[in-house]
Amino acid sequence: MTATAFQGAVVITVCGPLDHTGGDRLRRLLNAACTAFAPRIVIDLTEVGFMDSAGLNILLTAHHRAAKAGGWLRLAGASEQVLATLHVVGVDTVIGVHLTVAAALA
Rank of each mutant, 00 (worst) to 15 (best):
D24Q: 14
R25G: 13
L26F: 09
L26E: 08
L26K: 05
L26A: 02
R27C: 07
R28T: 10
R28E: 14
N31I: 09
N31A: 15
A33R: 00
C34F: 03
C34S: 08
C34D: 03
C34T: 15
C34E: 00
A36D: 14
A36P: 01
F37A: 15
A38D: 01
A38H: 13
P39A: 09
P39I: 05
R40E: 07
R40N: 00
R40M: 04
V42S: 02
I43F: 06
D44L: 10
D44M: 00
L45H: 11
L45C: 03
L45A: 02
T46E: 06
E47G: 10
E47K: 12
V48F: 04
V48Y: 02
G49L: 04
G49N: 09
G49H: 13
G49P: 02
F50Q: 10
F50V: 02
M51D: 10
D52L: 07
D52T: 12
S53R: 10
S53P: 07
A54W: 12
A54P: 07
G55S: 11
G55P: 09
G55E: 05
I58V: 15
L59P: 04
L59E: 05
L59K: 00
L60P: 09
L60C: 11
L60E: 03
T61H: 13
T61E: 12
A62V: 02
H64Y: 09
